[in-house]
Design a protein around this nucleic acid. Structure first.
Lengths: 338, 338
DNA sequence: CTGAAAGCGCTAACAG
DNA sequence: CTGTTAGCGCTTTCAG
């Protein structure tokens, strides 16, 4: 079975390649009868357009690059899942790149995406500062639409969709304080990320209202293992906080495993709350109080914004969109009143 | 900033495009001095090869298509995660397609992948029968390497990496029986999938050893909602089984949520075991006994096999590899001895 | 060792 | 309404 190109079906019908191209791509300038004939034989022969050729010719690839730190936790998996739905329904293909929060991997992947002529990029950037130049080049020189989600890069003008970390942290802190806690610790996400920095910063803003100690503040590095280890370290301390904020869902999972392992009683031994919800929060005994973001929404909105940019490309650079999603506070039973 | 192609750097140095191409792609036939010069100016100008052009010329795209039913559960997310690592390290790009267990979506995505000239496909096919023709065409006519993982298509000769569902089910059943259960129910995965069919079939093989009733067998459709609803239906029955097997991790999550909601006591009210492990199994109280597959391994192995095929392409079609991964039985505390 | 030239499959002027 | 032609950027003979 040899490949069937435009030429094949042009020969078959004794017409020119151009006509076939026009007919098949729905462009005007072909008589209805001929068009129908062409469409039919195309179908009969099982014609499949060669995307690489079109991409080369047009300079477009109908492909979108999606950059994420990791996929194994549910958070980014859900985001990617909704992005993929939106984009593939719109006729775009999704190239998935995971950075593992490693700036040089991020750079590499961005390069590849550029070479591939992707039409747009959805990125949860590794750091607030890392690869700033590269992103700037992509946006300003290459004029590729980029939408940041979950995290942002400092000083880069781009659309972004993030969750209100400040509000989320405040809800958590105020709740803990209202329950009588004034010795509070935190396991925050990697502080090089905008989310990590923001959550930590908001936490520190409470330093006059509550008692904070150095040892109660841990950078959990965003992943499960960091949550696990940081939690254990904190529980080893002589003077422990009475409540602990865990700064994302993967680290919360790690902490929950540590809790099981150490047979710690929540909330009697220590109260905990989580930034992010996840299945395990609900399932755990006691269920974990948290603020939740909606990853499905994040993916949906980011992808939609990108699609919109793509359509509106000819227009002068519009205002950048900055969507800040509200968190939802979910009270469960992991905090003790003291 | 205009684009820099081979032509740009050829002009810059007053040499021919062909030479530049040879120099940059490490082909012989360029003097060392010239080559070095070319490489340098290429770097200086920030040359980036246009992948579409190469793809068109060579008929290869260094791109792999990955087809999965869904991404929001941890199982496939982990698989994809490890595939992405392996493939991107080997210089391939990953196109992600989610089928939502819908055969026509699967077909659509496969078509797209073909048009894109992907060099290989990693697929967890929707059904044992659906799209059989298409897969056959891809493998036999297009000669594209395809590796099925987790699930297979009946009667298609292709490499595959699956978990031993039969052994897994037996471990679960024998364990339950050894604990004195002889009234056992099952919520199995979508029976159109090979995993669903195999697990159900193995379950039914026990029909002489234990008591099985129609109403104790539910097709949970593989997703969380199905696990949730099926579990509730079973608990409404007048005559209930004493133990229940839940056939994958997402459905187990659904069931666990139902259990919480209905305030059912495990294992006093009913014993449960799960095919697949997941974070929530470990975290739940009591922790759930299960057989576990290693999604990370599945991804790793499948991707490696594909890579191997890609390298060995010229050779005559070798034996198809059929990897069957063993499950691991993990006893926890969700089964009561009766 | 280097260059000229052809062509991958497709689109888009430009002619007729 | 249809055909001819010229490339998109790259690789690869074939000459020199």
């Amino acid at each position: 079975m040899k490949k069937v190109a435009l030429k094949t079906i042009a020969k078959e019908l004794g017409v020119s390649i151009a006509t076939v191209s026009r007919a098949l791509s729905g462009k005007p300038g072909v008589s209805d009868r001929l068009r129908e004939q062409i469409v039919n034989t195309a179908k009969r022969l099982g014609y499949q357009p060669n995307i690489a050729a079109t991409a080369l010719r047009i300079g477009k690839s109908t492909t979108i690059g999606v950059l994420i730190p990791e996929l194994s936790g549910s958070f980014f998996a859900e985001i990617v899942s909704s992005m993929e739905k939106v984009l593939s329904d719109a006729g775009y293909r999704v190239i998935l790149c995971s950075t593992e929060d490693n700036p040089s991997k991020e750079a590499e992947h961005l390069q590849t995406l550029i070479n591939l002529n992707v039409e747009g990029i959805l990125s949860a950037p590794v750091g607030m500062k890392s690869n700033k130049q590269l992103y700037r080049r992509i946006i300003e020189d290459l004029k590729l639409p980029v939408v940041f989600f979950d995290r942002i890069v400092e000083g880069i003008e781009a659309d972004n969709v993030v969750t209100d970390s400040k509000e989320g942290m405040r809800l958590l802190m105020d709740y803990l304080i209202s329950k009588g806690h004034h010795k509070i610790g935190i396991i925050h996400p990697l502080k090089e990320t905008s989310t990590g920095a923001e959550r930590l910063k908001t936490f520190l803003e409470y330093k006059d209202k509550i008692k904070i100690r150095r040892e109660w503040i841990k950078d959990g590095g965003s992943f499960e293992v960091g949550g696990y280890e940081s939690f254990i370290e904190i529980m080893k301390l002589k003077e422990k906080p009475t409540a602990l904020i865990i700064g994302n869902n993967l680290m919360t999972l790690g902490a929950l495993k540590a809790i099981k392992r150490l047979k710690i009683k929540i909330p009697d031994d220590i109260s905990i709350v989580s930034f992010d919800d996840a299945s395990w929060n609900e399932i755990f005994d006691p269920p974990i109080t948290c603020v939740s973001q909606d990853p499905y929404q994040i993916g949906l909105i980011s992808a939609s914004i990108l699609l919109d940019k793509l359509k509106a490309k000819r227009k002068t650079t519009r205002e950048k969109m900055r969507v800040v999603l509200k968190v939802k506070f979910i009270e469960r039973r992991s905090v003790k009143k003291i």
